[in-house]
Nucleic acid binder design. Structure first.
Lengths: 257, 257
DNA sequence: GCTGGGAGAGGCTTA
DNA sequence: TAAGCCTTTCCCAGC
């Protein structure tokens, strides 16, 4: 495909805010948060109506190069056609140099987003708030997504003994970061309210090292067992909650140490 | 485009491990780590030679739906053509139901990975190891990327007073996770070696709350000023290092508190 | 397989 | 804009 025709098609597609794909032999240079060079090779460039650009190789979901929120331009330069994507703050530039353009497609599409996702942490959070007694009898909600200077606590509750309970919810296996996150909130709540405060990490699982750290810090873990309903039903469902090894003593006792 | 022709093209492209794009009106259902549905609409599906699938709308870099490492099949079913991507462990399924296929493209491409980046953390790490005195006079390397049960410490050094120094390097703004990560390593080294150990977080910047936490924990921060060379030069260059507020006292002193 | 952690993370929400 | 954080994070390296 000759460059004149190709660049014409691309410009037309961009002006209509279509999704434009360009297949060809190109090299790619990125300068911005890092710098990278890609030698000439066959790739598929995807230019979206909102200014997103991505360069795809025939492997992996993630593009080799990409940029959001760009201003796009294409020019013929000697033996090549050069597509430039620019952005300010932070200053970034992606330069795609085509020595051959093999195909250009311009797909008319709305610039919309209508995905309905179920089973996100937000869903689970809402479900839990409806009945905190799933976690522990007598647990009463105090607040949700409460902002502290050191972050945002998922759920704050009060247990039957009148202690505050900070609950950190994870939809997947909890790790070190989850534990330290909970600790930050727990300590801050304790300091702010001046009352004994517990911290419960609620997740489908926890990595063993993270669990050790958790217990060393005097925090608790509760296993969250939830089921993802098929897409027709809009919400996930919490099947049950299981409390395990609520204290450090029990933990190391059970481990036989 | 009639379904017979479309499915034929798709099957042919898949068998050749091309990068195949399918543009059409489709609905998408995902069941796996979450569940999601996408009502009928125009979208571009991208099927890669390694079994990666992604569904793109006309906005954002990230696809609305995706799956890696899938087995793909396409069948005509009544008024629709249904593309199914399956994967075991964890069990996931992506179902793309086309009621119209408007375009199919099959791009012959190698299944390779040829991106070369500069300015990665590893590069900076190597540069720093060449001359730790940039961080502090008299600092001598002990180890690099040392594995501990609690993670991997970027750099371990010894200062002129004979203390161990654990250095955590971040190529971008440091946050809470960076601070707690460093603390984990520092504590573990201290325990393992039984010697007073310092911890230095080395990054181009740090969020103010994270900095507060850092000083509360008795850790140090050093500003790393580095420059990313244009792609022709292969390596980044460290322009300089600036030590600021090395102690909690200085920090709060400077803050006027 | 699990674990730990980087990434040009992307992308969203709220202050 | 910055901070904080979730993500079907993706992806890789080590073990």
């Amino acid at each position: 495909m000759d460059f004149g025709r190709a660049t014409g098609l691309i410009r037309d597609g961009l002006s209509k805010r279509h999704l434009v794909t360009v297949f060809g032999e190109c090299s790619v240079d990125y300068v911005g948060r890092a710098t990278s060079t890609l030698p000439f090779g066959k790739r598929l460039a995807m230019l979206k109506g909102d200014g997103s650009v991505s360069i795809h190789q025939n492997r992996l979901v993630r593009p080799t190069n990409y940029m959001v929120n760009t201003r796009l331009s294409i020019e013929e330069a000697g033996e090549c056609a050069v597509l430039v994507a620019k952005k300010l703050s932070p200053r970034e530039q992606l330069t795609i140099t085509f020595r051959k353009i093999l195909d250009v497609k311009s797909y008319p599409m709305e610039i919309t987003d209508d995905l309905r996702l179920s089973g996100s942490e937000r869903d689970l959070n809402d479900l839990l708030m409806e009945d905190l007694s799933m976690i522990e009898p007598g647990l009463k909600p105090v607040n949700q997504q409460e902002h502290f200077s050191k972050g945002i606590a998922d759920i704050i509750a009060e247990d039957s003994a009148g202690n505050f309970v900070v609950i950190e919810l994870k939809r997947r296996q909890a790790d070190y970061a989850s534990v330290t996150q909970l600790q930050r909130y727990m300590q801050q709540v304790e300091k702010l309210k001046g009352k004994k405060t517990r911290g419960i990490l609620l997740a489908p699982g926890i990595r063993s090292n993270a669990r050790k750290l958790l217990y060393e810090l005097g925090l608790e873990f509760a296993k969250l067992d939830f089921e993802l309903k098929p897409s027709s039903a809009q919400k996930a469902e919490i099947k049950g909650l299981e409390r395990k090894q609520t204290t450090l003593l029990e933990h190391f006792g059970a481990a036989g140490k």
